[in-house]
Design a protein around this nucleic acid. Structure first.
Lengths: 341, 341
DNA sequence: AGAAAAATGAGGTACGTACATCATTTTTTG
DNA sequence: CAAAAAATGATGTACGTACCTCATTTTTCT
């Protein structure tokens, strides 16, 4: 099997190598007639650039950075590990990735960090940060200065023109609702909804999706107002305990944020979780164990390894002025049960 | 940012380029002391082979083939399209893939085809074929003659040493059972189980997984014996109609094979599918529509694009004597609902 | 027709690695 | 201690493409 090279292409088109080069790389001073001739020859012999040769010639290291929250949970830890792993396995491809963790509570700090980035140091940025105007503007400006951007797992409003890697959170909430609803059978009762915070658009979208499905399809179920733990154990104990006291018909729980540990541990003390339907987000060692122990019934997950690799593939494609393969880059909303873990 | 080359490595190790080459490519006539010195330098400066340069030098086209059934359904069509798509997008990587469709009803024909393959024509084979001793032996012999093999979506017994791409069918059946069971609520009744054939190990494993979960967790449900359609509409009509007449407490249906169309269309005429729980396998235009129309409740799927790309990545890795990245290559059992489609 | 402009050809260099060959140095052996 | 063997160095070529310069041919314009 012979794979045609530029030399073969020149021969097939009846022109010189120099002209083939002019056509392939869109250089000036080629007549339309010659362009057509070469194009026809490309089709005819099925010429395709040899990527290895192109990459070798370019021979530029691509440097990408993930901006992630400083405070976080097991899912964050998993993400960081995935970035490190990708960094190792992509070194031979001249792709380098690292992580910068920032305090997301301070939008100006985040914006300042983004603004301080030197475009000659960095080819691309994957950023996971709560929505905020200063951050959004800093991202826009950095992008205009030539750094490629991927909005990672959480999107900024009005930046739809930038690539996004992650799931549709409305659909994720809707999926959780369907599971909670169907798994609860014909029971009548209330559904607890617990979040770390309702300030992020992710949480808001999930909640909307959740409510839409519950209200439309499960008249027997009553979703309760969102409880916000702020990631604090004592607060979680208080507000969850409070609600459990005032509400004796709980048949399901939806934990919207990726840290399921605190709410689950608090609730374990007060009631038998295997009697009700519990749905959480993100696969972590904790949620996996909880699934196996029947403390929870389903995990709604977005695969962190896929997400990291996808972000890097997109950044790499953009850096080489290629179009990303969109079909491959969509992140699925996974439903994990004990059986398909 | 500077990426170290072999030249830098030679300098760091205090040896010549020739010696670096000897160490990197495991050639003879190097003292252990020098080997250690170079190894230490590799760690120290973080040297990694430049894949682009290696590939360019090797410059060998890799030719892979998928052996798929001749008769098939929409899922098969999707698989073929994915192979064609991958073939196009991997051309620049010197990876070529095509499809050969064989009549799987005749194991000897399949075995003969495999045997007739010339190892100098083909670097690897992804094969999806029902279990049978002649096929298994032909695969083994072809593998010994230097063609890399991936068992694609369906595995042969006793060939565990070969790579496998696909899901655990026992777990897939168990997952289907969990969905059927939970979605049926507290209803008591029978579950229909429909398959194209029960002769394949895939079907058998799915059935075992399904029964195990139903029997262990859902005492209220009674799984009926498998109905085999053989892919024939008239037969399907007869046996399904028969069962519906003799059984008036059907609360769920599990369609095990990837062609859900025939059973669904037959059953639509006889009962209202939105009243019962229906679970099928594989996402196709048909099953997607059925999900949206509430004719079915869930799809248990293995992503065909992932499967094809994964098989090709494994074959490529094996062809280059690399170890495949196993973490990336596992195919998930996806649960698709109307909400996360 | 002749000058200017455009188009094309010819040939070289570079990317990083693998794999040669041959010369030279160092170590081991009898 | 000399001869054989092992280890190391020096140097060249090739892979396919991109980009460069310079010479030559063809076309266009006046």
């Amino acid at each position: 099997m012979i794979v045609p090279t530029t030399k073969d292409l020149a021969e097939a088109a009846g022109v010189s190598l120099a002209t083939v080069d002019r056509v392939l790389n869109d250089r000036p001073n080629v007549s339309q007639k010659t362009r057509d001739k070469v194009q026809a020859a490309i089709e005819q012999i099925g010429f395709v650039r040899n990527l290895a040769a192109v990459n070798l010639l370019r021979n530029k290291p691509y440097k990408f950075r993930f901006i992630l929250p400083k405070r976080g949970d097991l899912y964050l830890k998993e993400l960081i590990q995935q970035v490190e792993h990708a960094n190792k396995s992509l070194r031979s491809d001249m792709t380098f990735a690292d992580v910068e963790q920032l305090d997301m509570g301070d939008p100006h700090l985040v914006a300042n960090y983004i603004t301080s980035i030197d475009p000659s140091d960095l080819d691309g940025l994957a950023i996971m940060a709560p929505e905020s105007p200063p951050v959004r503007d800093a991202i826009s400006r950095l992008n205009e200065r030539g750094v490629h951007i991927v909005q990672f797992l959480s999107a900024q409003e009005n930046l739809a023109q930038l690539d996004f890697v992650g799931v549709n959170n409305y659909a994720a909430g809707a999926t959780a609702a369907k599971i909670v609803g169907k798994f609860s059978g014909s029971q009548t009762g209330s559904i607890m909804v617990i979040s770390e915070t309702m300030l992020s658009s992710d949480s808001i979208e999930r909640r909307h999706g959740f409510d839409a499905v519950i209200n439309a399809r499960f008249e027997n179920l009553r979703p309760l107002p969102s409880l916000e733990t702020y990631g604090e154990v004592s607060r979680a104990k208080r507000i969850i305990g409070n609600q459990l006291e005032h509400c004796d018909d709980i048949v399901g729980v939806y934990i919207m944020s990726s840290e399921a540990r605190i709410p689950i541990e608090v609730m374990c003390e007060k009631l038998n979780l295997s009697d009700i339907t519990v749905v959480v987000h993100e696969r972590t060692p904790f949620s996996e164990t909880a699934l196996k122990n029947d403390q929870i019934d389903a995990i709604i997950a977005q695969n962190p390894g896929h997400a990291v690799r996808s972000a890097l593939r997109i950044l790499r494609a953009r850096s080489e002025a290629r179009e990303p393969n969109s079909a491959q880059e969509s992140i699925r909303i996974e439903i994990l049960l004990d059986e398909n873990l």
